[in-house]
């Protein structure tokens, strides 16, 4: 598996990361190095092996259905660049 300049530009756009035109080539190279390195894993024969989701035998923790959180709007809004009337205020988004 390898990526080209167009793929890098597309992924960067999807991830909202600015990658300038002259960085595309070198970024593609770096990404391909990572992919090649991970690709080594495919040398191991994993036929019939269940995918492992955790190194310890753990079950998904559950929560009972109770209201135990929320109700601190000031703290939630504190780091927002802008807020008005209790809302987050962001540059206008129109679909």
């Amino acid at each position: 598996m390898s990526v080209d300049k167009e793929t890098v530009a597309k992924i960067a756009n999807l991830a909202r990361i600015a990658v300038s035109e002259d960085e595309l080539e070198s970024t593609a190279g770096e990404l391909n190095n990572i992919l090649d390195w991970v690709e080594q894993l495919s040398e191991v024969d994993t036929d019939g092996v269940e995918p492992m989701t955790s190194v310890v035998a753990a079950a998904l923790p559950r929560r009972v259905d109770e209201v135990t959180d929320g109700g601190y709007r000031d703290q939630v809004l504190k780091n927002a660049p802008a807020s008005e009337h209790g809302f987050f205020a962001v540059p206008k988004v129109i679909e």
Binding site: V76, E84, F87, F88, A89, V90, P91, K92, V93
Partner: peptide, 15 residues
């Protein structure tokens, strides 16, 4: 929920 009609240049977001 986004509200686009409450402010001329801003969108209000309620989480």
């Amino acid at each position: 929920k986004s509200m686009h009609d409450q402010h001329p240049t801003m969108t209000y977001v309620d989480l």
